[in-house]
């Protein structure tokens, strides 16, 4: 446990030192969403219709932007091989790293989302549905994304490959998340969609750490 605590502290202080780099996905998220009212026109009903989809697509894209730094620096400076040799269970260590990544690069997106919901004329029930889907859904992005980062970290130019690998995998999540917000806009129950996203989250929480650990070991060869 001591080793995992040390890893958590180190990753948090590393994130703090590199906060300029962490701001980039957040600014990208805000800018992409501000482009839509300008491009599509300020008509409230149109914006309300496309709003949830826009926010979710922007969240997926900006999470991909910051994803690579999850293991890239550690792989390049050799911290990763020292971590593998440290005796700390690698799956648990991977989970800690994913948690820090979610906390530092995705939680800010969720915190800024009320402002963006205002840009897109979302109603209050729609906004709450959006926040719930983001809170349960974005950890899936980090967990599944980390497997792909683990696999591509040994390649020199993994950036675009990463997006090509991951975007198709996130389609079901996008469908259920936007459908939940749509139901909320029609004053319908959306607990069904939330339950499915929750199931996806628990499933990836249970299996992804082992897959990430395996991917990281494979990338050492």
């Amino acid at each position: 446990m001591n080793g995992l605590g040390a890893l958590l502290r180190r990753d948090l202080s590393l994130a703090y030192r590199q906060r300029a780099e962490l701001m980039q996905p957040l600014l990208f998220f805000i800018l992409v969403i501000t482009l839509f009212p300008l491009g599509v026109g300020p008509e409230p009903n149109t914006l309300k219709m496309i709003g949830p989809g826009v926010i979710w697509v922007a969240a997926i894209l900006s999470s991909l932007l910051g994803l690579e730094r999850l293991f890239r620096d550690d792989f390049q400076d050799g911290s990763l091989e020292q971590l593998i040799l440290s005796g700390v269970p690698l799956a648990a260590a991977a989970l800690v790293k994913v948690f820090v990544h979610w906390l530092t690069s995705i939680l800010p997106l969720i915190i800024i989302s009320p402002l963006l919901a205002l840009f897109l004329h979302l109603t209050e029930p729609m906004y709450w549905a959006l926040v719930f889907t983001l809170l349960i859904g974005t950890p899936i992005l980090s967990l599944i994304g980390a497997i792909a980062v683990g696999l591509t970290v040994g390649l020199n130019r993994g950036g675009v490959l990463l997006a090509l690998l991951l975007l198709p995998v996130f389609i079901p999540l996008l469908i259920f998340a936007t459908s939940a917000v749509e139901s909320a806009s029609m004053q319908l129950q959306y607990s069904g969609q939330l339950a499915i996203i929750g199931a996806m989250f628990l499933f990836s929480l249970a299996l992804a750490p082992f897959a990430i650990a395996y991917a990281l070991r494979v990338s050492q060869t």
Binding site: G3, L7, L14, Q18, D77, G78, E81, Q82, G87
Partner: peptide, 25 residues
């Protein structure tokens, strides 16, 4: 001790070594 040193450039020497010792028990 490999070709890659396993120290993070953004952390100081003391922070790096403290983390390494903690993670290696």
């Amino acid at each position: 001790f490999g070709h890659k040193l396993g120290v993070s450039g953004s952390l100081s020497a003391v922070e790096n070594l403290q983390y390494w010792c903690d993670s290696h028990q």
